[in-house]
Design a protein around this nucleic acid. Structure first.
Length: 287
DNA sequence: CACTTGACCTGTCCGC
DNA sequence: TGCGGACAGGTCAAGT
């Protein structure tokens, strides 16, 4: 589910909702997804305040005053939802995809001293949370291997193209999805940006021209910035920290639009299987 | 090292 | 309505 724009949307919500709150208790029964012991929780979480919420690639970093960080990955179906006094929090119930919490998908619940709660729901249990000393977060294998943030101001089209040098013999879509090439791209924004750049997802990286890399760079930044503005994409599960859906899917040009006309040329959009993923393409105007 | 495929889980949808 | 199979937004560990 959540790619860079969705995780960024959750991060912004949590900045508003939980920074400064003090953790009173925590419950989970999910050794695989949250491996820390009760004593770790007691030492490093309880009584600590949330000081900051950061993001790197698709990883959410909830920083605590104890010097520890709750490192979180939502994977495919993870949701982090804040609940204050009212059942539906700050949002309108109709915008919400989730009802009363905790429910059967709730894996972790954090209770704050003011009576509010943070729930980590994850239907498929691919996601995880783990406490790390904040200073050791950069030493996590994934953090050392992950590529640059594509939306940073100083990340140029030239930097972008250079990142693909290692992956000349794979397809442009497989390379885009590789987190060590560029951070945060997933299946939705890979398909959307390739459509924007009019590049067929199956093209070999070695055959992509400099001009096409520049276009792809611009399109990737465009779709991700637009998605952040729209609060992310809700396909099935994704919700923001208020439990509300994002609206980028209303603006998608190819993703989940198979059998519909291409907004650029009118040909029928096809859905194929490529790089192990469902892939949406207009074969008439993507080459 | 680069590349591909299967595994991890639960739920839903589609065809028979 | 029941059942089997395919599929779902991500990453790893294995295999070649």
């Amino acid at each position: 589910m959540p790619e860079l724009p969705e995780v960024e949307t959750v991060r912004r919500g949590l900045m508003r909702l939980i920074v400064g709150k003090s953790i009173e208790s925590e419950t989970h029964d999910w050794p695989k997804g949250f491996p820390n012991s009760k004593s770790d929780v007691a030492q490093f979480m309880l009584g600590a305040e949330v000081t900051d919420v950061r993001r790197r690639a698709k990883v959410l970093l909830i920083e605590l005053s104890s010097g520890y960080t709750l490192v979180t990955h939502l994977k495919m179906t993870g949701q982090i939802v804040f609940r204050g006094d009212a059942v539906f929090g700050a949002g309108h119930p109709n915008d919400s995809l989730v009802g009363e919490l905790p429910d059967k998908s709730t894996r972790v619940t954090i209770d704050f001293s003011d009576g509010s709660h943070l729930h980590f729901n994850d239907q498929r249990k691919f996601g995880w949370m783990k406490l790390y000393p904040t200073l050791e977060v950069p030493e996590i294998d994934f953090m050392k291997r992950v590529g640059p943030e594509p939306l940073e101001d100083d990340f140029t089209a030239k930097d972008f193209a250079a990142r693909f040098a290692r992956r000349k013999n794979t397809s442009i879509k497989a390379a885009l999805l590789d987190q060590t090439v560029v951070a945060g791209v997933g299946n939705i924004y890979a398909d959307e940006s390739l459509w924007g750049a009019q590049i067929d997802p199956r093209r070999k990286v070695a055959d992509v021209t400099t001009a096409e890399f520049r276009k792809l760079y611009e399109e990737l930044r465009y779709v991700m910035n637009l998605a952040i503005e729209k609060g992310g994409s809700t396909d099935k599960n994704y919700v923001n920290a208020d439990g509300k859906r994002g609206s980028y899917m209303d603006f998608a040009r190819v993703f989940r639009r198979e059998k519909q006309p291409c907004p650029r040329c009118g040909a029928t959009i096809r859905k194929i299987k490529h790089a192990g993923r469902g892939t949406h393409v207009c074969e008439s105007c993507q080459h």
